[in-house]
Design a binder for these strands. Structure first.
Length: 563
RNA sequence: GGGCGUGUGGCCUAGUCUGGAUAUGGCGACAGCCUCCUAAGCUGUAGGCCGGGGGUUCGAAUCCCCCCACGCCCGCCA
């Protein structure tokens, strides 16, 4: 497909590079009053031995554009797409492509996105929830730009955390625990984990027993393996249920134990031993890069997490052309050292890593162990309730089921959006009033603009397919119409940008701006009551609905038909 | 102490990689807009030495150096 905005960009770059006889043309995106693309001519001045102003003037003189116009403003050139081209191309593409609008040609590349990968010891809390939300959005973005994406959850079913949980399950009687506030498997089991943890800190005997469990699992003791995997599976089941509500699913759950069992870890060990960057200290193998040293095995030869993770990444690398890992910032050292280890092994692809900082609550970091956290389940429930209140406040014509369904869509959207809208590396402090913000820069705002578009089309009631033939879309020439179309046209550029920079928050930003633009159009331009251009505007509303819906889809947020 | 990251109006935030033309929006505040397609909306006003200080440059929120604050990491845990 040929998106107008990208076609214009290609044309400008081609023309300018041929006029100036240079390879690289750095177009920038100016404030919207100035146009769609801009070229500051300062950088070329030294080389061409002309003033930036003269360069701009001579390019403006020589350039021939089919898809846009150029205007010189001092040392700058501002390019503007031809409105008629923009309008026709954009609206027709929306109609032709529908849900696929915004997608870029499939590129026949496989990508594995690993995200969440939380220890299966308790329910997901907000601190952890940032990971799946970023990860799932990244996966959706890359699907949109043509990748074959698979998402994976790396399950630590043999580590210390599961050992503690399993010990608790085997040795603690439920009567010793506080009542569980929520009847959900991960919430029930985490109490055993937390209690075991506190016992372990107090009693050396408990610690020893847990250590011996760790030893048994490394020796391949069947019963221990069984109990560990059973318990981690159960907690995992709870996590899956929570994520399902946010429309997040993993294609594959890869367990650490499977990597040990099928020899992948031994294999990785053999490869690592050969590296010069590896050495032993009291028989424990470690890998060292310029800055850090990470241990791969214990002195007794058993594997440590970094080695198993290397094995996992070798396994993934064999199955994909590109890898992305979404990790908490506490994994930064581990992650970057692992990248250099994989590099030293000659493994390709090396994973790109998106590190996100934590979500704190009341300025405190959340901890599963201490029980100091707000669970994702709680947030989702509260968001649902609050959304339901809002629905009931403005609608009395809906059934309970309908209201509830909308509340779910709106509530979950608000939760996802609130977390994904911020740049991953930025620290976040969880605040209820922000998570439950349904106005302004929020998911409900965007969903509302979608519902408004849907409502207009529903009221009209005609056959959407006929819209283009009933009206002449080239009549859409008013500024409010053009600006909305321009925003819709920007979708492919935005999604491409979000993918290249691996920055999901950019998509959130765009979706918001698109919704805002539609709301402005909605205010100024009657559609069903239009004196003229009714069908043309209906076509624009239809195109808007498609674009907003697709943008929400990329964010994993549902687009309601009414709310 | 060292490494990495973050610091933009009362609060949240875009822009930082690839330096450019008057720094993006939202929340909150204040003032307006529902005889008209859902006011979860729209319009306007106030609010900023872009953490501080040096430097590079024709030009710095953006690049370099120093400092300050906060977060994460510095386990034969994961």
């Amino acid at each position: 497909m040929e998106y107008a905005i990208l076609e214009l960009e290609r044309e400008i770059i081609k023309e300018v590079s041929s006029i100036l006889d240079i390879e690289k043309v750095n177009l920038e995106i100016p404030a919207k009053e100035r146009g769609d693309y801009a070229l500051p001519c300062f950088p070329y001045a030294p080389h061409l031995k002309k003033s930036p102003m003269d360069i701009a003037a001579s390019i403006a003189e020589d350039i021939r554009l089919e898809k846009g116009t150029v205007e010189q403003e001092g040392p700058y050139l501002n390019f503007k797409i031809n409105d008629d081209y923009l309008v026709r191309n954009t609206i027709e593409l929306c109609f032709e492509m529908g849900e696929e609008y915004g997608s870029i040609d499939p590129i026949n590349k496989k990508m594995i996105v690993e995200h969440t990968s939380a220890n299966p010891n308790g329910p997901l809390h907000v601190g952890r929830a940032r990971n799946p939300i970023i990860g799932d959005t990244i996966a959706r973005i890359f699907k949109k730009v043509g990748y074959d994406v698979e998402t994976q959850f790396y399950v630590d079913d043999i580590g210390r955390q599961v050992a503690i949980l399993s010990w608790g399950m085997a040795n603690i009687d439920e009567s010793e625990l506080q009542a569980c506030e929520r009847d959900k498997i991960d919430h029930r089991l985490v109490r055993y984990y937390q209690h075991a943890n506190s016992l372990m800190e107090k009693e050396k005997k408990v610690l020893d027993e847990i250590k011996s469990l760790m030893k048994s699992i490394e020796e391949g003791d069947e019963d221990t393996i069984e109990s560990f995997s059973e318990n981690s599976e159960r907690v995992l089941k709870g996590m899956k249920e929570s994520l399902e509500r946010l429309d997040i699913r993993h294609d594959e759950y890869k367990t650490e134990s499977s990597l040990i069992r099928d020899g992948a870890v031994d294999e990785a060990l053999k490869d690592m031993e050969k590296l010069e960057a590896c050495d032993r200290e009291e028989n424990a193998l470690y890998f060292e890069d310029k800055k850090h040293k990470i241990f791969l095995t214990r002195g007794d030869g058993t594997s440590l997490y970094p080695l198993r993770d290397i094995a996992y990444h070798i396994w993934k690398a064999e199955r994909a052309d590109e890898l992305i890992d979404v990790l908490g910032e506490d994994h930064k050292v581990h992650g970057t050292v692992m990248q250099s280890a994989l590099n030293a092994l000659g493994v390709r692809p090396i994973p790109d890593m998106i590190f996100h900082s934590f979500v704190s609550f009341d300025g405190q970091r959340m901890s599963t162990r201490k029980g100091s956290y707000v669970t994702l389940d709680d947030i989702m429930d509260v968001a649902h309730e609050r959304a339901l209140e809002e629905v009931l406040k403005r609608r009395d014509d809906l059934s309970i089921e309908e209201s509830d369904e909308i509340a779910e869509i709106v509530g979950m959207g608000a939760v996802r959006y609130n977390i994904v809208r911020v740049q991953p590396e930025k620290p976040m402090n969880f605040k209820w009033e922000e998570a439950l913000n349904f106005q302004g820069n929020s998911a409900p705002f965007i969903q509302y603009s979608h519902a408004r578009a849907a409502s207009i089309l529903r009221k009209w009631g005609g056959d959407h397919g006929e819209l283009l033939s009933k009206g002449d879309i080239s009549k859409l020439t008013e500024p409010g119409e053009i600006e909305l179309i321009r925003k819709i046209a920007l979708f492919p550029r935005e999604i491409k940008n979000a993918a290249v920079s691996e920055a999901p928050h950019l998509m959130a930003n765009y979706a918001y701006e698109l919704g805002a633009m539609f709301n402005q159009f909605y205010r100024d331009h009657p559609v069903l009551n239009a004196d003229v251009k009714k069908y043309e505007r209906l076509a624009l509303v239809k195109a808007s609905k498609i674009a907003i819906g697709n943008a929400l889809y990329v964010l994993g947020i549902k687009a309601p038909e009414y709310m």
